[in-house]
């Protein structure tokens, strides 16, 4: 038994080795892993990488740890404002980000973080509809409303994201996806209720996966996931619905309790490098906010409407904003009901 103890103690001490590191908490499937390796090679800083599949999970994990434990987190727009308001974030020192100038100014200085005090855009993208073009005829699905069609009973995929799903219903009813009006939210809930019989699966880890495995042939999807599925040989079509797609920006932030603040800045600056941003963009298939990276992209990516939407589609859609605690709480309650099938 003594030997065992000794052996396990050695094991533990080896593993608890605390070198120079940075702890990154990102959406799953949101980085080219070779980029991470490259960073470690160049700087000697180890990257500890953990993933989440919804803003809500990320937020409550962070809140539970009082903002400690992670050095970089990647919340969506509306969570950036919520988290900075609650004092969970620390300001980013832009003097340490020599590559900050690479960013597209159109995506900076937005309402959710004036002056980009706390956040640096990482990717932007959309939530719309994708379908398997092998089994479904082109033109069958052009709008969100088409998902309500009875022929999809027990067949749909929805992202496991309360804001996106409600956005869809709010747009169908002619409201803004950023509404705070409880009546409109309630109406959206009623609309969604009739969609539930069509839902087979909620997935935000990798919405492309049920498509690839053949279990789902139509549903909500993110543009990058569709791109990745296309890379893997699936014949997936991405449709910007007529009511307007959901647009969002995900940003890099540093939590208040981060222990490796310097390394976090180094990692962010590294991600802002044009060639790194290009590698990431070509791997995940979301639109990069990195202006300097765009000329480096292959034509196939740059001209793929799934990756970079047309200006018309952007104008027709709507970016996510913070809707405040009260409205999100209400949405969340309805969301739980919906996921229970009520």
């Amino acid at each position: 038994m003594n030997k065992l103890l000794a052996a396990s103690a050695i094991l533990a001490s080896n593993l608890a080795f605390a070198g120079d590191k940075v702890v990154v908490y990102n959406w799953s499937e949101y980085i080219d892993e070779s980029v991470v390796e490259q960073f470690t090679e160049e700087t000697g800083i180890e990257v500890e990488y953990a993933t989440f599949d919804s803003n809500e999970v990320m937020y409550s994990k962070l809140k539970l740890q009082q903002g400690k434990g992670y050095d970089i987190v990647v919340p969506s727009t509306y969570y950036v404002s919520k988290m900075s308001r609650e004092g969970l974030l620390q300001p980013i020192d832009k003097s340490k980000l020599s590559n900050f100038g690479n960013l597209n100014v159109d995506l900076l200085n937005k309402d959710y973080d004036k002056g980009n005090q706390y956040s640096v855009p990482y990717f932007w993208g959309s939530t719309a509809i994708s379908y398997d073009a092998d089994s479904i005829e082109a033109g069958t699905i052009t709008s969100w409303k088409d998902l309500w069609n009875q022929q999809w009973e027990g067949k749909l995929l929805l992202t496991d994201d309360v804001r996106e799903v409600f956005h869809m219903a709010l747009r169908i009813n002619g409201h803004s996806g950023n509404t705070r009006n409880p009546e409109e939210i309630k109406q959206a809930y009623e609309t969604l209720k009739s969609l539930i019989p069509n839902v087979l699966v909620f997935n935000s880890e990798a919405p492309r996966e049920p498509f690839l495995s053949g279990d789902v042939s139509v549903g909500m999807n993110w543009n990058g996931e569709v791109y990745m599925a296309q890379q893997e040989g699936a014949n997936l079509e991405y449709v910007y619905p007529t009511e307007g797609a959901v647009f969002w920006v995900d940003s890099l932030v540093i939590p208040k309790g981060a222990e490796n603040v310097d390394n976090a800045h180094k990692f962010i600056n590294f991600l802002l490098k044009a060639d790194v941003a290009r590698a990431n963009a070509e791997y995940v298939g979301y639109a990069t906010p990195n202006q300097a990276a765009i000329p480096l992209l292959s034509d196939e990516v740059r001209n793929n409407p799934a990756v970079f939407p047309s200006q018309e589609d952007i104008n027709n859609g709507e970016f996510h904003h913070d809707i405040g605690d009260e409205a999100s709480q209400l949405m969340n309650e309805y969301w739980q009901k919906l996921k229970t099938g009520m």
Binding site: D160, V199, L200, V201, F202, N203, Q336, K339, T340, G341
Partner: peptide, 14 residues
């Protein structure tokens, strides 16, 4: 089960 709230465990975890 497709991440629906089917079991009490899902609800408690949520």
């Amino acid at each position: 089960g497709g991440a629906k709230n089917l079991l009490l465990g899902n609800v408690v975890k949520n």
